[in-house]
Design a protein around this nucleic acid. Structure first.
Lengths: 334, 334
DNA sequence: TTCTCGGGTTAGAGCGCTCCAACGGCACCA
DNA sequence: TGGTGCCGTTGGAGCGCTCTAACCCGAGAA
């Protein structure tokens, strides 16, 4: 049995299709009697409007598409929370898709989202080439989270990765560390500014940067640490993100080094993983929910035509000191 | 500038709308010349089909809706991977939504998904009342993951929670434990069978069950452990899931008890969290990707009308022994 | 009483697409 | 030369809805 349509409701309520449409959209210019009749008929039939038909006819959409690069990273779940709240309060709904960390899959995901003709699209930590979304931005508002762009039709929401890395370095230096290595995020989004921030801060302190290539995964953190062990391990490590840091800690412990006794470790993101008491990772906090909320807001403003200039949010990160950083062994006796 | 439509492509290629439609859907009955012309025109215009209009006209859909109860739990991300792979290989696309662990929000999320008129809907760990989805299942195939139902129009994919809990108890008993407590999942999906499995296994071994109410979160695990400390802590704990177990471990350590020295801990799910070397949690593995794949398959079969009887997948869990279980202190001296 | 006005209501067109029936032209056979 | 098929192609209807313009009718004004 097919789903009831607006026509069925109209017939049952003894009114026209258009009137039903008006009632469903809460128009004030419907008499109370008819309104009640329509609502009752809809209720009895278990009618629910066909969103696709509606948006086709009205040439509008109340859907925001969200492409999440990696559903496994808790960071994004927390950004989505903010996005969801922001969208919901503006009367929009979220449709989520996942890109599986591969440019090709991300491209498919984006195409998939666009085929719904959403009001706007948010790309969370995309790794796909810029050309893929600049094209889309001609027709649909696009906001990037954790990825920068100079294209004027694209909005961006980022934390200040350079400042964040610098904070981490400053914290470690203030504890007495001088040999501080950085595991970077490879091709991942935002890995470049974090690396730059690290290098700049190290130089500012007159220290020698030591960068080892990584990825935003636990395995990469462990592998990077193994590479750092020779000739001599650093006294502190700034990891690419929290997940990466946890991998680094594991590898350090396997090598017989204690954290933070022998080596201090700082993560990045401040996801729930870092906050787990058993992990208790010193990390750089990104305001995740706020980033999601701002992304939603940026799209909504573009949709409503309230802004045509690009939004460029650069949020201040924050150092969260937990249990994985301490003064280096040589210093602790002083 | 509005997006190009099929009409624009037809005009540019000098053919009819219908022909363009045929080409785009890969019909064999189009001459090579026209096909090339159409594809070129589409390429030049940057045309991409309007999925909503297509599904409206064809009265079919290639979208599967997915409601994820909690995006923060890595378990679901891994189920979604399987679902995605299964859907993709059958030519379906996923549209994800999130329910935020609240019945009201889940209901909204389900309504939202249904308004796209998807070919089918997968509910991952829903906590909403059964009435909410039995209604939907009259028009749209529905599959539940990690939740059982006897409704014949609804398919289900679960792991055998009773067997899983029993495995955990058997493992702990074989190590010599006799005081084994269980932190349950409260109202969460699948918490009942796991609890039953635990109680039954304990009785089978002639042991006294000790259940403390919990939830599928870290905080609940920690709180439950604090409740377990008096009058005397058990020698082993079977937690509600991995996240819960990590919370329990933290609270045990804060109370000065070592894991597994003083207390062994077993989790449930075997998410990446349990596999982190720094956590290295003994746990019960659920075949997450396989569950996702089976859910996708169940929907696809229903959509194609290949099956009208309910699918009831009950997958065997598996014990994964890592570093959080050992013989109890009293025994280890033997 | 007739005219005007305006709020409530409706028919019809159209959103971008698919599908069906019908059409045109070509090769082939008689 | 005139069918007879058949293949490639097309116009038109219609999916469920919104939106515009027109319509109807009762109330108030003239």
């Amino acid at each position: 049995m097919p789903r009831p349509t607006i026509e069925d409701v109209a017939a049952r309520a003894g009114v026209s299709r258009a009137l039903v449409s008006l009632v469903l959209r809460g128009s004030p210019k419907v008499s109370a009697g008819r309104r009640a009749a329509v609502l009752r008929a809809a209720e009895e039939l278990g009618y629910s409007p066909h969103l696709m038909a509606r948006s086709l006819a009205s040439r509008t959409s109340h859907v925001l598409g969200v492409m999440v690069s990696d559903l496994h990273n808790p960071f994004w779940a927390e950004v989505v929370d903010g996005l969801d709240a922001g969208a919901r309060s503006a009367g929009f709904e979220l449709v989520i898709n996942t890109g599986g960390r591969s440019p090709a899959r991300e491209r498919q995901a984006l195409t998939g989202l666009l085929s719904f003709r959403p009001a706007g699209v948010a790309l969370l930590g995309p790794v796909l080439p810029a050309s893929a979304f600049t094209g889309a931005s001609a027709h649909t508002p696009v906001v990037l989270v954790s990825r920068s762009s100079r294209v004027s039709t694209v909005d961006t929401v980022n934390d200040d990765g350079r400042a964040g890395s610098a904070m981490a370095v400053d914290h470690l230096v203030s504890l007495g560390h001088r040999e501080i290595a950085h595991i970077d995020g490879g091709n991942g989004s935002q890995s470049a500014p974090r690396r730059t921030g690290y290098v700049t801060a190290m130089r500012r302190h007159g220290l020698t940067p030591r960068v080892v290539r990584g990825e935003y995964t636990e395995a990469a953190g462990a592998a990077a640490v193994r590479a750092l062990l020779s000739p001599a391990p650093p006294t502190a490590v700034l990891a690419a993100n929290d997940l990466n840091a946890v991998g680094a800690i594991s590898a350090l412990e396997e090598a017989g080094l204690s954290v933070p006794g022998d080596v201090s470790v700082v993560g990045y993101d401040n996801t729930w993983l870092a906050a787990l008491r058993h992990v208790s990772l010193t990390t750089i906090d990104q305001p995740r929910a706020e980033m999601g909320r701002l992304a939603a807001e940026a799209l909504v403003h573009r949709v409503r035509g309230e802004r045509v200039t690009p939004a460029r949010h650069l949020l201040p990160p924050r150092l969260v000191v937990r249990a994985t950083t301490a003064a280096p062994r040589a210093m602790s006796g002083l």
